[in-house]
Amino acid sequence: MQCQIRPAIPADAPAISAVIITTLRESNARDYSPQIIADVEQHFCPTSILSLMGKRQMYVAVIGQDVVGTASLDQAVVRSVFIRPDCQRLGIGQRLMARLKDAALAAHLDELHVPSSLTAESFYARLGFRKVRDEFHGEERTVIMHLRLDA
C-alpha cells in the first residue's frame, strides 16, 4: 500500500473533514466524553477546513485516491494531526510529522509546539516531543508539548 504525502487542496476539504470526524468518534472517544467530541467536531466541517487551508500549511496522506490522514503547521504549532482509524499504526502519522518538520526547518524555526489530545500524547512523545503542561478548555484536557528542532 503506497501512501503519498502532499499539500492539501480545496477539493480535499470534505475528505479531510470526514477523516477528522471519524477519528474523533472512533479513536479520541476513548479519552473524551461524547459532549467534548461533539464540540470539537463542530470546528472541522468542510467549510472550516477550507478556511484553515488559508491560514496553515495543510498536508494530506493519500492512498490511491483516498485521503487517509492530515496534518497542519500554523507557524511553529502543529495542528490537526488525524489518521483514519483503519490506517493508524502504519507509519502515516510519522510521515506527516516528518513533512511538517521539514516545513518548519525550511521556515528557519527552531522549535515546534503541539496542543495534543490525550489520545495522541504517546505518539508525539515517541517523536521526541516533551510535555510542558496541561491546559483545560472547559472539560477538555489538552497536553501542551514541545520539540527542539535540529537543522
Rank of each mutant, 00 (worst) to 15 (best):
D39Q: 13
A13F: 08
G91Y: 08
Q4H: 13
V81T: 07
V77G: 02
L96W: 05
D31K: 14
T119C: 04
V132S: 09
P7R: 11
I83N: 10
L24V: 11
I36C: 10
D39P: 06
I20G: 03
L73C: 09
P115S: 09
H146Y: 13
R126S: 06
G138E: 12
V19K: 05
I92W: 06
Q4W: 10
R99V: 13
D134A: 05
F123Y: 06
F123S: 04
I9C: 13
V60D: 09
A104S: 00
R84Y: 13
L149T: 06
Q88S: 00
L112W: 00
V132L: 15
R30I: 14
A104Q: 02
E139Y: 11
L96A: 00
M145D: 03
V40Q: 01
V40E: 07
H146A: 04
Q65A: 07
V19I: 03
V132H: 06
D31S: 14
S51W: 06
A15L: 09
L112T: 01
M97H: 04
R148F: 01
K55Q: 15
S116C: 03
S33V: 09
I92N: 02
V62L: 01
V132W: 03
I37W: 10
R141A: 11
Q4P: 06
I16E: 09
M97D: 04
F123A: 01
G128F: 04
R133D: 06
L109I: 01
Y124L: 07
I37S: 08
I92Q: 05
M1D: 13
D134H: 10
G54E: 03
L24K: 10
I37N: 10
R148C: 03
A103K: 05
A61H: 00
S117G: 03
A120H: 05
F136M: 15
G138N: 11
G128R: 00
I83K: 10
K131Y: 08
T47R: 15
L100N: 00
I92C: 02
A151D: 12
I49R: 00
Q35S: 15
P34C: 10
I21Q: 14
L118Y: 08
E111G: 00
L127K: 02
D150C: 07
G93H: 09
I20P: 05
A38L: 14
V62R: 06
I144K: 04
V81A: 06
K101D: 10
E41D: 11
